[in-house]
Design a protein around this nucleic acid. Structure first.
Lengths: 249, 249
DNA sequence: GGCTCATGTAAAAGCCGTTCACATGAGCTG
DNA sequence: CAGCTCATGTGAACGGCTTTTACATGAGCC
């Protein structure tokens, strides 16, 4: 019955060699499976083949492991947002849209990180490193908003970039939390979360004075804001998703 | 040492008389204090002065108690949104703004309910009654969006009301989750969550073609969209909060 | 007055987080 | 290579939580 543990130990010796990393990986899998709340320190230890007390050599407590994962999550999040922004290429609005998509994609594809980052109830402000990592991720959005704000058409007042960034963040986060995760994703929607967010952002930008076309067919001087690869996984809108609400009504 | 328990029992007899309600109230307080994750079935029992097994006579398990609270929360949420909407009085845009404010106010003033509703990780779709209650609350936003959509100025295409409702919901939820709750509320912001959401919604509506003034001073035919009572608790914008971004920049 | 059944209790099993004394062996030092 | 040290892992134990089970109580009804 317990030969398994002996076997494990025979395979790897008394010392694990890379327990910290193994625990992080195990936790990541467990959180993805059962959520940040359901994740268990003991389970992670079991999965790594060590005793329940072993993790305490690498993390002060369960929360510190969770924080470590959240921090890694923010770092990967920042990297993905930065890649999506691509310094505003090929044009600012297109890149901006891509950042929003990347936000949703991250929430969808990295549920464990997302969960640790936003749904674990961790005291963010108690951990400076964690807060800084989150700040850096938000910095990508803010930088993009700054570039976008500088682009407001002449004649229209220039919105504060910080406010724009906070608006975009709240839209992305709202859509991700409500429609792009877990059970909520199964809600009946007239459009995909990606399309929903895209329309939302485009309408918002038009409200700021940006010349966004109202229908997929009519175009302005700017190139179409959605690159081809972004249409993957989208069930509706065969006419394209470049307008604020595609072919809907 | 244990005379307390005896005393309790002496006060109320062997049977509690209203344990279910007492447990719900106790849980509400505990969740407000320590979050939905930190709340404990045993604690609620202790607070009600009964043994740890007693709650099982009224709730299948801890999750069912949590679900009950979430359901009540959605009902109160719906009531508050309905009151804020006030059937679109005195004008549609004003009432619409008030609904957004009510969303944030609920998140702020009823942290326990909000926590159970949106942060507890409950399997919403597994509980039809809970899902229905949530649907009814969202119905208020949808109804408001329908009225607003019917008001789009002539010449501009009419947006799908459902999409508008989802957009408004995601904005409200995003702002509430990120800036209006717990530690996140302590983040340094250039404006209050209320102002942030108000500006966001107004810019969005302008993007849909609604004639929203760009500055507090310039007015259109519609009355100012913010009633006096809404400015309470707002630290900045002495010039009023009626413009999409007040006196900022 | 006596029955019944909803409601509460005590005890126990199984899990988890956390701590502590102790075991192991990797790597340095001479 | 011998021996020492210290990081890393173990086992046992404590208290707390959830949930189940057998038993106790007494409110309401005939």
């Amino acid at each position: 019955m317990s030969w398994r543990k002996e076997q494990r130990r025979a395979e790897r010796g008394y010392h694990h060699g890379n327990l910290k990393e193994a625990l992080l990986q195990a936790a990541l899998g467990l959180i993805a499976e059962k959520g940040a709340a359901g994740f268990t320190f003991a389970d992670a230890a079991r999965m790594a083949g060590v005793s329940p007390a072993a993790p305490y050599r690498h993390f002060r407590d369960r929360d510190e492991l969770l924080s470590s994962i959240a921090q890694r999550g923010f770092e990967q999040f920042e990297a993905r947002l930065t890649a999506a922004w691509d310094d505003g290429r090929p044009d600012t609005v297109t890149a901006f849209e891509r950042v929003g998509k990347a936000y949703l994609a991250f929430a969808r594809e990295e549920p464990a990180f997302y969960s640790a980052m936003f749904e674990s109830g961790l005291p963010v402000d108690a951990n400076p490193a964690l807060m800084a990592a989150g700040e850096r991720a938000f910095g990508v959005i803010r930088a993009a908003a700054e570039r976008l704000a500088a682009l407001t058409p002449p004649g229209t007042p220039r919105p504060p970039a910080m406010m724009m960034a906070l608006h975009i963040w709240s839209m992305s986060h709202g859509v991700a939390s409500l429609f792009s995760r877990g059970d909520a994703a199964r809600r009946k929607l007239p459009m995909s979360p990606d399309e929903l967010l895209e329309a939302e952002v485009l309408i918002y930008l038009r409200g700021l004075g940006f010349p966004i076309e109202r229908r997929p067919t009519t175009k302005t001087a700017e190139p179409p804001p959605v690159p081809p690869e972004a249409s993957s996984g989208s069930a509706s809108s065969p006419g394209g998703t470049s307008g604020p609400w595609g072919k809907l009504k």
